[in-house]
């Protein structure tokens, strides 16, 4: 597979705009959420959609998958789901007298993992390698996953019944966590109207293909991040580790994710360089789900989001090196 050719930022803005518009025909009144999903797609990250049931998590995942016109696989995670259901399994083919690899659900460009925290930790872990290394190893054979590859997992809040909380290691592998939130009253009325007549998802025509998405990703990756921005990302991430409100701060991988997401964000703004504003925009979705509040913060009912807001207000914007 050859490296996809980058494209102009104008084209990127146009293409992502089309994708977003397509998704928004299904998921109404949530432009920010849609935008963030596309950002994560461009940043080669994985998306964790967490909210109460019935607010459209799966709808978002499915419509995004359909809009980009890539191969989509959906896994409904249930307590009895086995790891091999995710990764695939080698079956003995009697005709050819050989083991034959039956790819699992993960072999797709877009993998929609529904209610991922309903599966057992063992099955959840099966996703780990796929998500991070973009490859699957079954019976000693490694199979590469085709880019683009994005896991869009939905989960109910951990307090709900019948859930296994995602392990920290796996949470860290998701680039961003999104919360759908209830739609506004007007959007809800609108939704009733539309979804009553027909299924908008089935009417959604793809506006992109895998090749285009690969080129979008390559373009976003080429966005320039100055030393000042990198310093800013690092100082933000380090601040989460030193604050007394957090038991577990953000990992170095999260810094990487944050910068990649910021690049994608900048690209979608049509900018060739990252601004601290991009970083600030993405701090909450990228970092919040990885943080564990300290006992004090829990007692004071300070959520990691609030702690992050406090950090954002205190970490100084680095100036250019020349005058520092």
């Amino acid at each position: 597979m050859s490296t996809p050719a980058p494209m102009s930022l104008d084209d990127l803005v146009r293409a992502t705009g089309a994708i977003r518009a397509a998704v928004e025909t299904v998921v109404e009144g949530k432009p920010d959420v849609v935008r963030l999903s596309v950002t994560v797609l461009l940043a080669e990250g994985h998306l964790l959609l967490e909210d109460v049931p019935g607010v459209g998590k799966t709808m978002l995942a499915k419509s995004l998958a359909r809009a980009v016109g890539c191969s989509v696989r959906r896994i409904q995670f249930t307590p009895d789901l086995l790891p091999s259901d995710v990764t695939g399994v080698s079956i003995y083919n009697q005709e050819r007298q050989d083991f034959e690899f039956k790819p699992g659900a993960v072999f797709a460009n877009v993998v929609v993992g529904d209610e991922i925290n309903r599966a057992s930790p063992k099955t959840q872990s099966a996703l780990l390698e796929c998500m991070e290394e973009r490859q699957v190893t079954v019976d000693g054979t490694t199979y590469r996953l085709q880019p683009p590859f994005i896991v869009m997992a939905t989960q109910n809040p951990v307090e709900m019944e019948g859930t296994y909380p995602l392990p920290e290691a796996q949470r860290d592998r998701f680039m961003a966590r999104l919360s759908m939130g209830y739609p506004s009253a007007a959007a809800e009325v609108d939704m009733l109207e539309r979804h009553g007549e027909h299924d908008p998802l089935s009417a959604l025509a793809p506006v992109a293909d895998a090749e285009l998405v690969r080129r979008l990703i390559a373009t976003a990756r080429a966005v320039y991040a100055s030393d000042a921005v990198k310093e800013y990302v690092v100082s933000l991430v380090r601040a989460t580790r030193s604050t007394a409100d957090l038991r577990l701060g953000a990992s170095p991988r999260s810094a990487l994710h944050l910068l990649r997401a910021a690049k994608a964000h900048a690209a979608m703004e049509g900018r060739q360089h990252v601004l601290p504003d991009d970083v600030q925009e993405l701090v909450h979705p990228v970092l919040a789900h990885r943080l564990l509040p300290s006992a004090d913060a829990q007692l004071a009912r300070r959520s990691p989001e609030e702690v992050l807001s406090g950090l954002l207000a205190h970490v100084a914007i680095p100036r250019s090196r020349a005058t520092a």
């Binding site: 320039y224 100055s226 000042a228 921005v229 360089h273 601004l275 601290p276 680095p318 100036r319 250019s320």
Partner: peptide
């Protein structure tokens, strides 16, 4: 200032 700080 953005050009000074954040652009190549």
């Amino acid at each position: 200032v953005e050009s000074a700080r954040y652009m190549p």
